[in-house]
Amino acid sequence: MSVPEGLHYTKEHEWVSFDDNIATVGITDFAQSSLGDITFVQLPKEGDQVKKDDPFGVVESVKAVSDLYSPVTGRVMEVNEPVLKAPELLNEDPYTDGWLLKVETKEIDMEGLMSPDEYTDYIEEQG
């Protein structure tokens, strides 16, 4: 299971990276592989507000649905449009081409976020 360095992870299996006050959000390799073939992604629109730990969208496979929880609070700057048309990008490449949102945040709140090592331990516990 791939857990790249330089990213921060949540218990809900999202990842986030920060570039100044711009946060990029996606789902982890573990999340995509537990869901199986992803068939549908629902995301907020540009300009919408997202709130830390609140649901902001949905990913679906053939027989499962999973809410997406935001790791940050802020305004959606950009949505990865290609993912909406080709949800398989999330299976193929969850960390680069499969990113979901870019969010403008006022402050970087690291509470509840895990380092790659911590997240690796966490998913091992989850089995």
């Binding site: 679906e60 053939v62 027989k63 649905v65």
Partner: peptide, 11 residues
């Protein structure tokens, strides 16, 4: 049958 994620047995 498809798009079953709308339905009661999943959601």
């Amino acid at each position: 049958l498809t798009l079953s994620t709308r339905e009661q047995h999943i959601r």
